[in-house]
């Protein structure tokens, strides 16, 4: 009986959390446009969330492109289809690997630090003090971070896609010794921009919104204690990654 009650309480909590998160995101979005100064903050946040993530995204993209190429080469070679290696990589990267892996890395790199930043601001009463200075923290703190995250994730995904291809082309051309003309022409003929590349980018916009909601929720509503902040950062990474994967499935199933 008690166990069922506990499950019920947890479920109610989860639903309330989703509601609060949606309220926060909606308000953050609307109130973002209330203050002209938010645009400058937005620029700073894009610089933090986007430019600072470039090295991580670039490294991951190059290595994933290279590893994936070698792996699929071994398999394709046994069917005599080694020249299709570029096509296989391109399709996987544009449709799945690009949006999903960038989103997962982004959760760890940006989501967790946004949660920690907001948590720390809450711990040191900075939100309260902003409110006391007649400044709305949802407009000035939540809003720009939300918009920045939704904008930067697709941009980083575009970057990931191209860099992964370069990594793959390098391995295919220089290390395996495939003809690079065939590599690129197979890509060009086999991949459709509107039905393979753009849906992936659309997914990454949704992922950006998910990661922003999760990280801002845990930062804004989470426990304002040092251990609470640490736990909330972890929660952001765990829940953010899981939601990205779940929504990836839902979106793929819906977009078909």
């Amino acid at each position: 009986m008690k166990k069922i009650e506990a499950i019920g309480a947890k479920a109610l909590n989860a639903i309330a959390g989703v509601g609060k998160g949606a309220w926060l995101v909606l308000n953050g979005f609307i109130l973002f446009f209330n203050n002209k100064r938010n645009w400058q903050t937005l620029i700073h946040q894009i610089s933090f969330a986007g430019i600072m993530s470039l090295p991580l995204i670039a490294m991951s993209a190059v290595f994933i492109g290279m590893v994936f190429t070698i792996q699929s080469y071994w398999v394709l070679e046994s069917f005599g289809a080694a020249s299709e290696v570029g096509l296989v990589l391109g399709l996987s990267v544009f449709r799945e690997l690009g949006p999903v892996i960038t989103a997962l890395l982004y959760t760890g790199r940006v989501g967790s630090s946004i949660t920690a930043e907001l948590g720390l601001m809450k711990t040191s009463e900075q939100f309260a003090s902003m409110e006391l200075m007649s400044v709305d923290p949802i407009s000035r703190i939540v809003g720009p971070r939300l918009v920045a995250m939704v904008i930067t994730l697709p941009l980083l995904t575009m970057f990931f896609n191209w860099v992964a291809l370069l990594g793959s082309a390098f391995v295919a051309g220089k290390l395996i010794g495939l003809d690079s003309g065939t590599f690129w022409s197979n890509l060009k003929n086999g991949i459709l921009f509107y039905s393979d590349v753009l849906p992936g980018l659309f997914k990454s916009v949704i992922f950006g919104l998910i990661i922003a909601s999760v990280s801002l929720y845990h930062g804004y509503f989470g426990d304002a204690t040092p251990s609470g902040v640490a736990k909330n950062s972890t929660r952001t990474v765990v829940q953010g990654s899981m939601l990205v994967l779940i929504f990836d499935y839902i979106l793929v199933a819906l977009m078909r």
């Binding site: 986007g50 570029g86 391109g90 860099v163 291809l165 690129w184 890509l187 921009f193 590349v197 980018l201």
Partner: peptide
């Protein structure tokens, strides 16, 4: 720098569109 970043990302997308896919 942020402007550069945005332009750079779209150049990446453009490269994908031009070299690695058919814009049907």
């Amino acid at each position: 720098i942020v402007g550069l970043f945005v332009v750079f990302a779209f150049i990446c997308l453009g490269m994908v569109a031009l070299r690695a896919s058919t814009v049907e």
